[in-house]
Design a binder for these strands. Structure first.
Lengths: 212, 212
DNA sequence: TGCCAAATGAAACGAACGTATACTATAATT
DNA sequence: AATTATAGTATACGTTCGTTTCATTTGGCA
């Protein structure tokens, strides 16, 4: 997965999407050649390359059978615009919005809630430490990506996870006391956590509960 | 517009939709003929008829250029099956799923959660009576429409609202005690409500919280 | 019964389409 | 310097596809 796209290949991808959005059916090889202003073979080669890299799928010898994969859609419209990546485990040090962390995408009517340019991600919440804030085990939190937060907000922070080199995302209230950062659960059973170097990843902006 | 469909034509329409959902690109005339188990000409004539009646659109001489119109989608799957109506106030006696109650539609990734034939609706929840179940004021509950429920489930029930002839929808835990129906809040500050003739409208299947 | 109209099918034509061959050129990598 | 990946043109082959022609069947209905 996650191979790199060349500039031309990305152009082709976008042409395919554009054609599809305008016509509601996929383009033929010649349609793509026309849009890209190149020869049929040129377009065809790009299609083969895009297929090999996993950005499109198609049926051999069938006309107009190109479909964009999730990766392609993700490349063409960044997470913030429409689809929210659901984050899995976070490797040490890496940025939270790297492709390798995306387990799947969480379709979400985001555009009705927010119209700005922030990027969002989703995180499955485990445990009942935020129970009293109405956030239960299994809920999917929708977070706006930002690296700082006002005290009192519910945030995602990265903390070291035992036994592995990976980090773990934890969801807590964020407070400050002097120079110390405090992570506080919304459940009196959990004690505060005090951390010096806090890696804030985002603040809670929404919630989805798959089942009740 | 809105002409009538013959039985065969509706079958063809459904075949087109089925093919499209399975492949993500439209069928060719021969694909349709295969699905309908008829000749190419038979399928083609049906396509022409469907086009004349406004259920499909297509580009002449272009392969796989059939697209279903809104009318077709409406015929094939009524609104209630996919988009979730957001219910406003409920007039006295009327069924909860009447058009007049829909204030708007709540687009929701329903298909990933449920694959059955139930009908769903959404309801904005007011108050904090279900706070301890993680359902806060302003949350939008997603309910499966059904008129009975097992005890212990969170349901929507219709109760008389003071001063008006209208009914109000209330969300509570449902319990039984002998022949009496008990509506119980998930907040100790609220007392149980005991009702004799309970109008259950649906049970909670999901939740969306627009803002935190 | 006989006739019309709608529905259906086999076959075929030509356009649209995927695919292949051959050749050129550029840039990055080995 | 050789290799590989990318990008491109022009041309052509064979398949898929929309469309048409002609003939056949089917189902009312006068």
């Amino acid at each position: 997965m996650g191979k790199n796209l060349t500039k031309r290949q990305k152009e082709i991808l976008r042409h395919i999407l554009t054609f599809y959005e305008e016509n509601n059916y996929p383009p033929s090889v010649r349609d793509i050649a026309r849009l890209h202003n190149c020869s049929v073979k040129g377009a065809y080669d790009h299609i083969l390359a895009l297929e090999k890299k996993g950005f499109i799928e198609r049926a051999a010898r069938r006309s107009r059978s190109i479909v964009l994969t999730e990766s392609a859609k993700h490349v063409l419209r960044p997470a913030s615009e429409r689809r929210i990546p659901l984050i899995g485990r976070i490797a040490a040090g890496g940025p939270i919005l790297a492709d390798e962390h995306f387990e799947e995408f969480c379709d979400f009517p985001l555009d009705k809630w927010e119209k700005d340019n922030y990027r969002f991600f989703a995180l499955k919440i485990e445990g009942d430490s935020m129970r009293d804030a109405g956030i239960l085990d299994g809920d999917i939190g929708i977070f706006r990506y930002q690296q700082s937060a006002e005290p009192g907000k519910i945030i995602v922070a990265l903390v070291d996870s035992e036994g592995t080199a990976e980090k773990e995302a934890t969801v807590k209230y964020y407070f400050r006391e002097g120079r110390r950062n405090i992570l506080r659960a919304a459940n009196p059973a959990y004690p505060d956590t005090i951390v010096q170097n806090l890696q804030i990843q985002g603040i809670l902006r929404g919630l989805v509960r798959p089942q009740v």
